[in-house]
Design a protein around this nucleic acid. Structure first.
Length: 599
RNA sequence: CGGGGCGUAGCGCAGCCUGGUCAGCGCACCUGCCUUGGGAGCAGGGGGUCGGUGGUUCGAAUCCACUCGCCCCGACCA
């Protein structure tokens, strides 16, 4: 071990012995600031942009090791463990069993489901010393299903819900926003095993309930929205989304009927185009390529145009048609035609025989898919001839196409269910639930025997929660200029005691009494026993964001009181210094009611 | 992977355009005095291969090339 140079005083020491005793449960506990590594920063490190990233760094909760790799400092880890404790309680409530799987997986299991080949660079791969292919788990469907295939034989053993809180590794293309998107992260992932679809539906709704309880207890505002099952495969999927401008996803919401979906699949009805009449004719449009240019040139608004885009899929080129004022939601296209990308300019010329800008739906031989919005009306589009467009195109008469929902839902579009205007909100994905069906159980041979001795694949679901995302979202939704304001359910401590004058015997005595008194009552307390000026302690306390501050100063003690400051509101009240702990404990107990909920 | 930006003391930054007292500032840290309810004051002090490598030059933090790392936007996100 390297020795520190003489004379360098270390601030990194151990926590209270008393805390060690309770450490096992991660509940309860008390710590002294002077003996805890809480390196607060007066200034924001330049790498941080998002509020949660900035504040968690400044308040000493996290440190960055490398891009997308974060260290949880003592306070940060306490928050994570509090979140995990909430998750464990709620998982237990629905009868889920906790277990722990390896992070290092043999390749052959992933090869059996095909994901070894489908997943690209995002999977960390390696070989062991014998040359066997291995990977680091980015999720655990394969391993859980493997386990089930060996251990579950009979319908009598179903249903089962297994979960773990385990590290996942994904070589993210772009880690970002501190702990929001990292390459290594902890995830609660559970898997349900049922004999049929009805059983799955039950397991699924149990998880829905558990997730609502978990996120509410963590003090988050959140939505449950329909999501894209994607490559997870299967019948249905929802995401739990915490609204925040720092998020990475957008969701569409209908205030009147409650429709809520990720924009990746949200259906919407764009505003109708004013009907116009135009004769069928080719027009000269020299150098006018984009919808905007042609629209201005012809004096016709964009919704009277057909936008033609060429994509290249694994099965060949696809011509995509959208109304001129609409944008393509690529996910929707991918669900229809498989993985695809926009064609390059040369490819467009080669495949369609015309330059981008003058492509149109008429007379082309390639597979053509068109957004439903185009079914009715008369349009202008490219003539498939340089510098020319065609007016008066009627879908169905002048071209045929596969019809599909392809456009991106926008704010103000009509709700596809009830017609009311949709709202779009930016969100952080904090959890997801998927109906997997038999996508994994079949290839991995996870079968059970029914009452008649007949073999069936187990019907599965998978359900994830990102505790670090919860922490990040909680900070995003709960902070002010001075720092973090933790929701009561996940704060690293319930209360923080601030002795303002460390040279005053009375201040110290009362502070210690409160510290011990609260601890004895099962309250988690942090005491700032550093020999710092009052101002420093106030600033750090606000930054760190523990919900209740107990301010013990000579000023108050002269009147026989200590002050309680609520971090969120800044409100202060006084309580008698004698036996203050009892009253403070009562205040904390009352504040523990969950504050937020499904938005 | 495409686009943009940034690497100078633990943190935040100036200096770079126009090479030459440019190794500098604030905070933090150490010592002393003083102060003690919202990141005090004064005095003194320690700390930097200017991300790395190679070039241009009498001379490079500064110009050029390559390289590594990091951040932001986009793509991706099983």
């Amino acid at each position: 071990m390297k020795r520190r140079p003489e004379g360098v005083r270390t601030r990194v020491v151990h926590c209270d012995v008393g805390f060690l005793k309770t450490l096992k449960t991660f509940h309860g506990g008390h710590m002294r600031f002077s003996k805890t590594c809480v390196p607060t920063l007066r200034e924001t490190p330049s790498e941080a942009e998002a509020a949660s990233h900035r504040l968690l760094l400044r308040a000493g909760y996290i440190r960055r090791l490398a891009s997308g790799l974060y260290i949880f400092m003592p306070l940060g880890w306490r928050v994570m463990e509090r979140i995990n404790a909430v998750i464990r309680e709620e998982m237990a409530r629905i009868g889920a069993q906790e277990l722990l799987l390896p992070v290092l997986h043999p390749a052959d299991i992933w090869q059996k489901t095909g994901r070894w080949f489908e997943i690209g660079e995002e999977m960390f791969r390696l070989r062991d010393r014998t040359g066997r292919d291995m990977c680091l788990g980015m999720t655990h469907e394969e391993i859980m299903t493997w386990l089930a295939s060996r251990e579950i034989r009979s319908y009598r053993e179903l249903p089962q819900v297994w979960y773990q809180i385990q590290t996942k590794l994904r070589d993210e293309a772009r880690p970002k926003s501190g702990i929001m998107r990292t390459r290594e992260f902890i995830m609660k992932d559970s898997y349900s095993f049922d004999r049929d679809e009805n059983g799955l539906a039950r397991s699924y709704s149990l998880h829905e309930e558990a997730y609502h309880r978990i996120f509410r207890r963590c003090g988050l505002r959140f939505y449950q929205v329909e999501s894209d099952p994607g490559m997870m495969g299967g019948a249905g999927a929802h995401e739990f989304m915490a609204p925040s401008p720092a998020g990475e996803d957008d969701i569409a919401l209908c205030a009147s009927c409650g429709y809520a979906a990720n924009v990746e699949l949200a259906r919407s009805v764009p505003p109708e185009a004013e009907p116009v009449e135009m004769p069928f004719e080719e027009v000269h449009t020299p150098g006018k390529r984009t919808v905007q240019e042609v629209s201005a040139f012809l004096g016709l608004s964009p919704e009277h145009f057909i936008k033609s885009l060429l994509y290249v899929s694994d099965s060949g080129p696809v011509l995509v048609l959208l109304r001129g004022d609409q944008e393509l939601q690529e996910r929707k296209l991918q669900r229809l035609v498989g993985p695809c990308r926009p064609a390059r300019k040369e490819e467009v010329v080669e495949i369609l025989g015309v330059e981008p800008g003058f492509i149109g739906p008429m007379g082309q031989q390639v597979r053509t898919v068109a957004d439903e919005v185009l079914r009715e009306g008369v349009y202008v589009s490219g003539a498939n001839r340089a510098d020319h467009h065609v007016k008066g195109i009627r879908p169905g008469r002048d071209f045929t196409a596969e019809w599909a929902d392809l456009h991106l839902a926008k704010a103000g579009d009509g709700c596809s269910a009830c017609g009311s205007p949709l709202r779009i909100e930016r969100v952080i994905e904090i959890g997801n639930i998927f109906k997997l069906g038999t996508k994994y159980s079949v290839p991995l041979k996870a079968y059970y025997l029914d009452e008649n001795g007949k073999e069936h694949p187990i019907v599965m679901g998978s359900y994830g929660i990102g505790p670090a995302r919860i922490a990040a979202a909680a900070v995003e939704q709960n902070h002010d200029d001075n720092g973090i304001i933790w929701p009561e359910g996940i704060a690293p401590f319930d209360a923080m005691v601030l002795p303002l004058q460390m040279n005053s015997e009375d201040v110290l005595r009362v502070s210690e009494e409160i510290y011990r008194g609260l601890t004895d009552r099962g309250i988690d307390v942090f005491i700032d026993d550093r020999d710092e000026r009052a101002g420093v302690k106030f600033k750090d306390a606000d930054l760190i964001g523990i919900p209740l501050q107990v301010i013990v100063g000579e000023k108050g003690l002269r009147d026989g009181v200590v002050e309680l400051k609520t971090r969120r509101t800044g409100e202060k009240r006084t309580v008698k210094a004698d036996d203050a702990a009892g009253e403070i404990a009562e205040v904390i107990r009352r504040a523990r009611q969950p504050a937020a909920g499904s938005a």
